[in-house]
Design a binder for these strands. Sequence first.
DNA 1: TATGAATGAGATTTCATTCAT
DNA 2: TATGAATGAAATCTCATTCAT
Lengths: 221, 221, 221, 221
Amino acid sequence: MTDGNMISRPRSGAAIEPDVPARRPPAGPRRRTEEVLAAAASVFAELGFHGATTQDIADRVGMRQASLYYYFVSKEAALEQVCQRGIEHIIGDTEAIAAGTGGATDKLAAIMRRHIEPLSENSASLRAFLHERRFLPKDARRRIARLARRYERIVENVVAAGMEAGELRPDLNPTLTMDAVLGICNAAAYWPGKERVGSMREIADGLVRLVLDGIAAPKAH
Amino acid sequence: MTDGNMISRPRSGAAIEPDVPARRPPAGPRRRTEEVLAAAASVFAELGFHGATTQDIADRVGMRQASLYYYFVSKEAALEQVCQRGIEHIIGDTEAIAAGTGGATDKLAAIMRRHIEPLSENSASLRAFLHERRFLPKDARRRIARLARRYERIVENVVAAGMEAGELRPDLNPTLTMDAVLGICNAAAYWPGKERVGSMREIADGLVRLVLDGIAAPKAH
Amino acid sequence: MTDGNMISRPRSGAAIEPDVPARRPPAGPRRRTEEVLAAAASVFAELGFHGATTQDIADRVGMRQASLYYYFVSKEAALEQVCQRGIEHIIGDTEAIAAGTGGATDKLAAIMRRHIEPLSENSASLRAFLHERRFLPKDARRRIARLARRYERIVENVVAAGMEAGELRPDLNPTLTMDAVLGICNAAAYWPGKERVGSMREIADGLVRLVLDGIAAPKAH
Amino acid sequence: MTDGNMISRPRSGAAIEPDVPARRPPAGPRRRTEEVLAAAASVFAELGFHGATTQDIADRVGMRQASLYYYFVSKEAALEQVCQRGIEHIIGDTEAIAAGTGGATDKLAAIMRRHIEPLSENSASLRAFLHERRFLPKDARRRIARLARRYERIVENVVAAGMEAGELRPDLNPTLTMDAVLGICNAAAYWPGKERVGSMREIADGLVRLVLDGIAAPKAH
DNA sequence: TATGAATGAGATTTCATTCAT
DNA sequence: TATGAATGAAATCTCATTCAT
């Protein structure tokens, strides 16, 4: 299994979403919006939406609490923006991977890595998306759910394509497989706190192999 | 792969922990403790620890909010008790399964079902354990973490035993495999909200097969 | 100045109100009333009326909180009874002293000692009377105030008698003098917490002398 | 005994600490901190720390209860600030008096007046300091106790100096004398509620004379 | 763009009290 | 005589939000 190099440069230049931009872009209006949302993301991921206070966010950007309201209209709105960023980021990259030229196993490997890495490295907005989106008000929740489904469908399609190409076992249920694949990936969100053997990357590789071996079509011989 | 019938009835008679007892036990002191904790569990699971109010709990037991404090000392203490129950319940059953006489695949299948079913059927305390235990104060968190590790180790040991018996692939990493297995199971916690095809049971079965095929030792022929 | 021995045995046998009876009287109804009120007194003195909870009282008698209401009708009623005991105790003794046969200086010395000693030894009900009676409801406060005035008048009369007898300076204002005398005594309530030189008794003696020298009639020569 | 005029104007211009400023100072940040603490002082003095509610304080400043927390961090913190102000105020003035040029009797007279007047005129923070400081949490209590000791030592030193100068009786115990002097002064805190004969000022003068006569060195003749 | 001040609405927790047993 | 269970009323404190500047 190759590394799937053609997608090793995910489209979103920001390289796996650092959440706290290294250096401020030269200028431009609403410059600090990014900072604020990154702070919100990390606070929501760490403390949970309801466990986080706007003061926590303000502390992290070095701003007064009241000033935040220049950047968002309400705490809930901030959560929506954070979730949206989390999922859109990954959607963009995943679409690029899916549109690539490799085989299904390579693609799935790349997708899993793209999903696991930011999680295990504590990327805030994806974690916030995963765990906190359920606290969004109805409408926002629906909007974010649509994005989530879009993401899932990409993965599902990759699986389906792999089955048709004879690369994956023909008896898979693509939806279920997608759920299993992403389920395993999401589990990785909880690992950094554990004393695991091996680096995160080794673990991710192990996981990828484990899953792919499970769904690969039996080798003819 | 057989169904592993000998363990399909988990030891704890209460069968998948109904969380809200159908009828009150005859009498005895502190009778309503169970009721109260079950209500707390379901509210925490549904709304998140910080999103839930003690009033929510009181409403669900039909008690005044202040009266709850007769049964627990603080909201956090209630969360700890809920988490403890969630994990201890499953530990008991899983130990029984692991101590059974079947093969590793059968055991893992039973374990997965035991883990998935209450989750997908909305069992409160296990969900609360999974998602809310991180909001416990340090000490309580450590106590609960010890229980969690105990559970994981049971599963891990089943995997290792299966490998030794030649029933599972010899190149597995038992810890990693356990993580993957439980990761998939936990993912099921999010499914009830989705429009899935097929009954929960079919889905669970599909998942179980998927995973076990992935880790089963290649059939000699 | 002699010790005023004729009054060294105050009338109330209980010897300066131990607040916690050494051994329970053989039997009789409402036996534990004493215990309960003593506990209330010490808790009120220590924590202040509003700072003390009925639970604190219950803890000190080894009783459940609800059981206290068998002994008093409300927390405020308990305070009134405590205050009443505190002041009546001292009134009884002080009247005995005042009715004695010695001179005014001897009597005042005895009165001061009787007032200072229980305070400095942490007697609860007198302290409660001094500091907490202001939290009584209007009517109860008036009743207790009447007792307080009675006490003050005794002391005042001793002063006046001493002036008439030529034993005290003729230019004293009896009321003011009484206030000063009791003011000094009450100050002693705060001393046990301080690192003072000398035993409490030495201090009390010093105080007594100080005051009496101040108000004694100049020795003719 | 002269009036000790040179010190009759205590240094702190605010003249006996009015506690509720007549008119708001022109502007500046945190303008209302003073108002809030003055209100807290008067409420604590009147109702006792535990008997007072933050709502009482808010009512007195004309602010909503929640807004108070903009000015202090907790009710206990408010009490500490109040106590600190109460004692620091008096320390400043008393140091000025003690450093003056008159004799010990003049100085003690001035000190006593400075102590008695605000008490009898209901100055809140000094009363709060006297009666409520015992409800402070340990650390704060220690800090305030240090200030209290500083005050006492000033008075003690004045007494000692007067003894050395032959102005006060040579057989006094300076500590004890200081306790007696302040004890009498503190008693005045309870007088406004009483129907006393004469104006407060006459009473204070009477007290001062009484005490000073008691400790003055016998006039040689 | 940012902030100080304030507030309304609640959250958790405490506590005196009641009452059936 | 005593208690377990429950409750109403409040108390302290938190927090998202507003608004004038």
